[in-house]
Design a protein around this nucleic acid. Sequence first.
DNA 1: GTCGAAATGTAGCGATTGCTACAATAGGAA
DNA 2: TTCCTATTGTAGCAATCGCTACATTTCGAC
Lengths: 178, 178
Amino acid sequence: MSDSNEKKQTWLLLMAGHVVENGLAGASLRPLAKAAGTSDRMLIYHFGSKDGLIDALLRCLAERFTQALDAALPPGHAPNRAACLAEITALMRQPQAAAFAHVWLDILAEAARGTTVFQTTAAAIIEGFLDWIVGRLPEDDPDPATGAAVILAHIEGALVLTAAGRPDVAERVENTLF
Amino acid sequence: MSDSNEKKQTWLLLMAGHVVENGLAGASLRPLAKAAGTSDRMLIYHFGSKDGLIDALLRCLAERFTQALDAALPPGHAPNRAACLAEITALMRQPQAAAFAHVWLDILAEAARGTTVFQTTAAAIIEGFLDWIVGRLPEDDPDPATGAAVILAHIEGALVLTAAGRPDVAERVENTLF
DNA sequence: GTCGAAATGTAGCGATTGCTACAATAGGAA
DNA sequence: TTCCTATTGTAGCAATCGCTACATTTCGAC
């Protein structure tokens, strides 16, 4: 059992890499299996169905994302909200964050259409992101929940504007937010 | 020629409706043709290829979106930025806006992955949206470009947070933005 | 009416989709 | 060894994908 779980976990990591590079929307069994070094037959056998695989893959991606946040910028309090936002914005401009942004938009599109697994995954990612931001706000922030919400909303807005090819709009806002 | 263009335009409107309801990512020729009341054979014949069809469909969607904005809230100056944001936020909560949000996220996901047609469409939609917001800002707004950018960034952030199942976060920000 | 081009229907191609039937292998329990 | 279950490979199914070959219809120019 533990042996099987280890193998599945290895597969999931490899498939997560493939998904980050090639997108989640058009991901089909055979390419995923090739990325994991196995066969579609095995993926169905161990995950039950493609839905089961996507479910596991989404959990894996969410966990990887929250871990990546802590790894990139471990908790530590910024002097003020503006500095905190600047730090996170700079982090989001790094290539690995941009790569994840593609998958994030895939997840959002499917979540918006009502698919339960994608909705819970998206909510979990948001929750983890909010917690992480709270841990980076100024120690004396009067209202960390609101502060984190403002920063996260701006990060997500900037994500959309950047994806739409207008990072300049996001930048203009960033300079006048706090 | 004009006859052919009229027919294509009718088809595009019907297909746009289908796409808004069923998503753009998984849209394939035969369902689109059925929605337009024709055949996949005819779509290929008149649009050259699926890429050509998607291109035309995206232009149609972008135009429909900007027109829908003007139709929902014709230009008129709000008393202040906060009121302007509140108006637009209320508008975005209407069902038709939510329906378009699904397609918008599809477009963004594809644009983020680098597909040119989606990128230009996304940029055009952003541009039209910005112009429309400028036309609704207070008449004496000191910096309409920045004001529109701040409002649009928040709207897009709220879109993401809502799609992720956390509209509460967006709402919290809205109350403290101006 | 005649002719030629545009427009449309029918049928199907090769590729890919998620998934499965069947058989073979492997590895531990008795 | 013997048997049983878990695991894996091979092959293929029905459905759908974008697209095309071929035949037919439609329709305006002459």
